[in-house]
């Protein structure tokens, strides 16, 4: 198939940036979206132009590196997939595809389609962990009784790959689905209880400091999340926050 691509080009974080049109031809419908981007970049290199910078790593939908706002949706028009898993069969011959970086004040553009997502790292560092003594006699985690239901829900929350599609999709650039998932994965397990109060307070505080917006409960994040992280995790975070506020 032959396509017209409208891509955001921005030299560096201080440059103004603009949408630039490109043509790609003979794209196979079996290609992934990133493979199509590879074809474009080869074309650009061959003509002496600067290739389009975009994030990618595992290309298996696990690492959370790829992003891209494609035709007005995070990770494109398909559901439950990252951009690397999005296939060109989702598009038609002759289509014009708009490709933009994640947009959020807390995700500044570094170059072209690459954004700085280290704000997520700082939120994690603020409390997204449990402190375990590893002096040599660490207890086997499997020795702690955990209900199947709690283990499954914690695992569901833990499948968040931190790609930032929730923020990119949210009309308020809110990070509450991400933070909700990271709070939930510990809140559901006994190992997470010891630091539960500090965790939610510190992670929410860091989220606010990073300049993410507030949740309006539109549910868009849940729909666009490639891992299907449920809004239930935001409700759980809200409960944890209220509990922690009352406990002090």
């Amino acid at each position: 198939m032959n396509l017209t691509l409208k891509i955001w080009r921005q030299k560096d974080s201080n440059a103004k940036g603009q949408m630039v049109d490109y043509k790609v031809t003979d794209i196979s419908e079996h290609m992934s979206f990133l493979e199509m981007m590879d074809v474009l970049n080869e074309q650009l290199v061959n003509t002496g132009e600067e290739p389009v910078a975009f994030d990618h790593d595992c290309r298996e939908g696990i690492c959370g590196m790829c992003s891209l706002y494609i035709n007005g949706e995070a990770h494109g028009p398909d559901r439950g997939v990252t951009t690397c898993q999005l296939h060109m069969r989702m598009f038609k011959d002759g289509d014009t595809i708009t490709i933009e970086p994640w947009r959020a004040a807390a995700f500044p553009v570094i170059k072209d389609l690459v954004v700085d997502r280290t704000s997520f790292e700082r939120i994690q560092q603020a409390g997204g962990y449990i402190s375990v003594n590893t002096s040599g006699n660490t207890q086997d985690a499997n020795a702690i009784p955990i209900s199947k239901h709690a283990a499954d829900e914690a695992m569901d929350a833990a499948t968040c790959i931190g790609c930032g599609a929730c923020v990119a999709t949210c009309k308020n650039s809110s990070a509450m689905l991400f933070v909700g998932a990271k709070v939930s994965q510990y809140a559901l397990l006994p190992q997470g209880q010891v630091e539960a109060t500090d965790r939610v307070m510190n992670m929410v505080k860091q989220m606010d400091l990073e300049g993410f917006g507030n949740c309006t409960n539109t549910g868009a994040c849940e729909i666009e999340c490639p891992k299907g992280i449920s809004l239930e995790n935001i409700a759980r975070m809200n409960r944890e926050f209220l509990k922690a506020t009352i406990k002090g």
Partner: peptide, 9 residues
Amino acid sequence: KAIGVKYAQ
């Protein structure tokens, strides 16, 4: 304020 630059689409 949190949104920053708006999407073209």
